[in-house]
Write a protein that binds this DNA or RNA. Structure first.
Length: 186
DNA sequence: AGTGCGATTGACT
DNA sequence: GTCAATCGCACTA
């Protein structure tokens, strides 16, 4: 399915992280779509060493490192060979909350899965998980929704200054774990 | 080999 | 509200 459909589909679904110390489960409450022929998509200029995982079959993970300290977790959306996907931007914590918080106690409860960098930190996502099949058993996978998605809002993407004519960010309306400025959360 | 910069965050005014 | 930190990658030469 295309990135927009996948971005909407993923709202309300769960992401599960299996760690030696236990299991973490979060509910996806915010995503952004990155499309084919989209100048803001990392795949825009063709495959490189950095973005190659984005060209995997849909359902695989594309993880990258940015700003010297943050990992971002994406889900590929298209058949193998096409570079497009969905960025996971925020979670509602459901299970394994102490594991998510470990080492990050300075953040308030509603902040530690809010924002793409903090989401990846909470799930202990790093480059080792790049290219992983998220639809198979393993250290990180996507699960069914545990409760309804609720109303889905959309807005322009955050931190993107190109192709701003499309509203490619999707979020669970009114959910307190959604990131971004308040006027983009209602 | 050197340079510029980014799908962000947290600390500070 | 502003702004620096921080590093791997892409690009130029």
């Amino acid at each position: 399915m295309d990135s927009v459909k996948l971005a909407r589909y993923l709202i309300g679904k769960t992401v599960v992280r299996e760690l030696p110390k236990g299991r973490i489960i979060g509910r996806i409450v915010e995503t952004e779509a990155y499309l084919l022929h989209d100048a803001a998509c990392h795949a825009f200029n063709g495959p490189t060493k950095r973005n190659r995982s984005l060209f995997l079959e849909h359902g695989h993970a594309y993880v990258y490192f940015i700003y010297g300290n943050h990992f971002m977790l994406n889900v590929c959306s298209e058949p193998k060979g096409i570079g497009a996907g969905v960025l996971l931007r925020a979670l509602e914590p459901l299970e394994g909350i102490p594991l998510m918080k470990r080492g990050r106690s300075h953040l308030s409860h509603k902040d530690f899965t809010r924002g793409p960098g903090r989401l990846a930190a909470a799930l202990r996502v790093d480059m080792k998980l790049d290219g992983l099949d998220l639809c198979a058993d393993g250290p990180l996978w996507l699960g069914e929704a545990m409760k309804p998605a609720g109303r889905i809002g959309c807005s322009v993407r955050i931190g993107i200054n190109r192709d701003t004519h499309r509203r490619l960010r999707f979020y669970a309306r009114g959910n307190p774990y959604v990131s971004g400025p308040k006027y983009l959360c209602g």
